[in-house]
Every structure is written in C-alpha cells, then in structure tokens.
Design a protein around this nucleic acid. Structure first.
Ligand SMILES: [Mn+2]
Ligand SMILES: [Mn+2]
Ligand SMILES: [Zn+2]
Ligand SMILES: [Zn+2]
Lengths: 151, 151
DNA sequence: GAGGAAAATGACAACAATTAACACAAGGCT
DNA sequence: AGCCTTGTGTTAATTGTTGTCATTTTCCTC
C-alpha cells in the first residue's frame, strides 16, 4: 500500500512540525482531516459526522473515532476552532489568517450561519476576565435569530 | 394524598395564568421546578440533573423526564433561560427583573461562573441581526477563561 | 361534587453524540 | 531493518436527552 509519506520523502509540514515536537506523529488520517478544512475554505463549520461523510465520499476513509480524536488534537494545537452553534453537537472551523477572530449569527430554524467581527465584543471579554482575575482563553458571541427565509 | 392545590383553593399564579391561556395545565411538578429556581435566587445555573437531585433531596420527587419536559416548557414561556456554559449539557437560570440580560465568564477547569452585563455586546448582536435581515432572538457572550484558583 | 375529555406524569426504552478499551498497524528514531 | 511507542479501527460503553405508552391528574361541564 502506498503511504502518503515514506522515510525517503520527509515532508516538513507545519502540522508535522507541531506534532513531532510533542512526541506525536504525522499520520495520513490527520493530514486528511486538516487538508479537508484547508481545501473547503474558511467560513465553513463542520461537525465530526460531516467531516466523516466528506472523507468517505472522497474515498479517504477515516474512522469516526479517529475523526473525533483528530478534531480534538487539532483544536489543542490551535489549528481548528471548536464552536457550539446549535443543537446536535460541536462544529469545527479552520483557524487561519484570512479567518480572524469572529462571531456567529445563527438561524434557529434552518441553521444558516453568518459571521461577523466586532472589536467591542472582544474587548468586553477581555475586561470581564481582567476584572475577575481570570486568564482569558477566548470569548464567543452567539446571536440566535431567524433568517429572512425562515420568518 | 394531599395535592398542592384543590378545586377549593384555586391559586391564580402567574405560572397558572400563563399555562391556562394556552390549554396547558398547572401541575405540582411544574410548580416545584419553578419554585426551586425562585427560592434558590438568581445567578444560579442548574442542569436538569441538578434540578432533579435538589427536588429529590427536598423530598419533592419529580421524575427526570418530567424535569426535562418542564424546563423546556418554562423556557418557551419565557420564565427560564437556557444556557450552554460548559460540556455536559444545558443549564437553566431564572429570568427575572433583578437578573437582567447578562453574559458569562466561565472557568474551563472548575466551572466557576461569573456574570457580567455589557451594553455594547447586546448592541453588537442587534446590529449583526439587522445587517443580515435576521429577526433577533437573543445574543449570548460566553467568555472561556481560567479562574485564579485554577491557574 | 361527579363525569369525562385532554393533558401530564413516571417508568423505561431508544437515541444521538461522544468516549473508552483493546488488539493490531504504522510512524519515526537508531 | 528493528524496536518502541503512538495511532487506528472496531466495538462496547457513557452521557444527556427524547420517545412511547399505560396510568394518573387537571380542569371544564353539568
Ligand atoms: Mn466561523
Ligand atoms: Mn447567569
Ligand atoms: Zn433560516
Ligand atoms: Zn476555576
């Protein structure tokens, strides 16, 4: 079976680097999951199940358990961001330069999701953390609403 | 068995009124759940399981299924507010005059939760909804952080 | 105060999302 | 290449929540 990288073809990807300096390993499965997010473009919010489906369709079979494990890992590494937009589980999006810190407007009927940036909101999170002596990790504003099509 | 309200003692509670004009019924279970939130005071965020435990401890046994049903009902009626603060399910808090629209600062280690108000954040939600033509329902800012005790 | 239709409850099964266990496979250092 | 350790797939288990259904209760009408 052809493996993605052989010992003669050491690809030094950002993913590989991040993994190796932590005793972790670069696997085809991890690359497939990250590549999916990179190819699909920013602004997409996928569930574990959806990642699984998409990989199966592109004949890159990765088990669902591994997808859950990989999503958690990529979040820990700071490459993905975990969202709680709706019922029915978490969603994940690529963290990248052209996808800055932003917030979400969600239609509670159809799930349509729009993104927006707001400096004041980020500041509000910083201030709240500081006042209470907390160390800030992240702040996320979720706006629940009904989209034009669903009214 | 003594029932909470007999036909001779019709209590016209706000809860009863709200229910009756909708073809729904005032039951001891619904009163117990709402009373729990009213007695515990505002600023408390309880899970369904915690509501269940507290009612069992106060020898007011209500089945867990009924608690889930009742929490959903009270949210629909606008008496409770549903929160997604942490892993492990939803939490609920009383909506009242002395508990205005506010946001949450959550320690990801121990779960300690602080509340804060911020007008700019509410405005940001309104603006985002308006710009996209959505009908606003609510906006909630969750700030994930680490509290002083957990650093 | 009964009688009765409709709604609610409790007990329990089913479900969906996620995690755990473990035998086997594969990555990466030497 | 060989070895050690990490990762994967399969499957079972957990957790939070909802569905089913027989029984009970509310509340409207007389
Ligand atoms: Mn996004
Ligand atoms: Mn609160
Ligand atoms: Zn919609
Ligand atoms: Zn803490």
């Amino acid at each position: 079976m052809l493996s993605f990288s052989s010992q003669y073809n050491v690809i030094t990807s950002p993913l590989g680097d991040g993994l190796h300096k932590d005793g972790k390993r670069l696997t085809p499965q991890r690359l497939k999951v990250l590549n999916l997010f990179e190819n699909i473009g920013s602004g997409k919010h996928l569930s574990a199940e959806e990642v699984h489906e998409k990989l199966v369709k592109s004949s890159s079979k990765v088990s669902l358990a591994t997808i859950y494990r990989t999503l958690r890992l990529l979040v820990q590494m700071g490459l993905l961001h975990e969202l709680e937009l709706s019922e029915g589980g978490h969603r994940y999006e690529l963290l990248s330069n052209d996808n800055p810190d932003h917030h979400h407007l969600i239609c509670i009927r159809c799930g349509r999701t729009e993104e927006f940036e707001n400096e004041e909101v980020l500041k509000a999170g910083k201030v709240a953390a500081k006042i209470n002596g907390f160390k800030l990790i992240e702040s996320s504003l979720n706006v629940r609403a009904i989209c034009p099509n669903c009214i």
